[in-house]
Simulated scan of single mutants.
Amino acid sequence: MHALAATSRRLPQRVVVAGAPGEALSAFLQRLATVLDVPLVPLADLSGPGEVARLAAFDGWVTTADEAWQRPLVLERTEVLVRVDLASATFAGKVRRTLRRIRSDVREREPDLGWVDRAPAIHPRLAVVRLPDPDSAETWLRSLG
């Protein structure tokens, strides 16, 4: 009797990640690119629409799309859009976040991620993965490797 051979699962090669900027997001992006074995290319490092369009034409990458003008150029070729919330779940993290929201002089501009919910209507073939907390992000990354 022969054991069934495991079928090889195809991992996404073009991934856009949306989340609040910071060290946690940077670490997540780097780990995702490593797991998928594709380059991490921050769109902020590119100098305009021509370079973003050239990136989109490549076969593999992980990036963000923080600016609205970048999204149409990369989402057309994106296989998976990941919405990740890596905010600290510790009590101190919640206090800091609450204070930022209450005090206008400390308020940091939180990214508008409403575009993530609208993206599938514009790009129906786009798979969207929602990772609502650091634990689900970690579980998802492990499931890819």
Rank of each mutant, 00 (worst) to 15 (best):
residue 80 V to Y: 02
residue 23 E to H: 12
residue 37 D to F: 01
residue 40 L to Q: 07
residue 120 P to R: 11
residue 25 L to Y: 11
residue 115 W to C: 04
residue 134 P to H: 06
residue 93 G to D: 02
residue 55 L to P: 05
residue 40 L to T: 01
residue 6 A to V: 13
residue 8 S to G: 11
residue 4 L to H: 13
residue 139 T to P: 02
residue 36 L to G: 06
residue 34 T to P: 00
residue 104 S to K: 11
residue 81 L to G: 02
residue 32 L to S: 04
residue 39 P to C: 03
residue 82 V to W: 03
residue 8 S to M: 11
residue 24 A to R: 15
residue 70 Q to L: 00
residue 3 A to L: 15
residue 45 D to Y: 01
residue 66 D to P: 06
residue 27 A to L: 12
residue 27 A to M: 07
residue 13 Q to T: 14
residue 21 P to V: 07
residue 107 R to Y: 08
residue 103 R to E: 12
residue 81 L to P: 03
residue 2 H to C: 09
residue 42 P to A: 10
residue 18 A to C: 14
residue 41 V to C: 05
residue 36 L to N: 07
residue 1 M to F: 14
residue 124 P to R: 08
residue 66 D to I: 09
residue 124 P to M: 08
residue 18 A to D: 09
residue 126 L to P: 06
residue 73 L to K: 00
residue 58 F to R: 11
residue 2 H to Q: 11
residue 142 R to D: 15
residue 81 L to R: 00
residue 33 A to H: 02
residue 131 L to K: 01
residue 120 P to S: 11
residue 62 V to D: 00
residue 107 R to H: 13
residue 119 A to E: 09
residue 18 A to K: 05
residue 14 R to D: 05
residue 105 D to C: 07
residue 9 R to D: 13
residue 69 W to M: 03
residue 123 H to L: 04
residue 113 L to G: 07
residue 90 T to E: 00
residue 114 G to Y: 12
residue 69 W to R: 02
residue 29 L to P: 09
residue 75 L to M: 12
residue 84 V to N: 01
residue 121 A to V: 13
residue 34 T to D: 14
residue 109 R to A: 12
residue 77 R to M: 06
residue 15 V to F: 13
residue 7 T to G: 13
residue 105 D to Q: 08
residue 35 V to E: 10
residue 130 R to V: 14
residue 139 T to M: 10
residue 90 T to G: 04
residue 21 P to Y: 04
residue 43 L to N: 03
residue 36 L to R: 02
residue 7 T to R: 09
residue 44 A to W: 05
residue 128 V to H: 02
residue 134 P to Y: 04
residue 119 A to K: 05
residue 107 R to Q: 14
residue 66 D to K: 03
residue 8 S to T: 15
residue 80 V to H: 10
residue 42 P to D: 10
residue 69 W to C: 01
residue 4 L to I: 12
residue 70 Q to P: 01
residue 8 S to V: 15
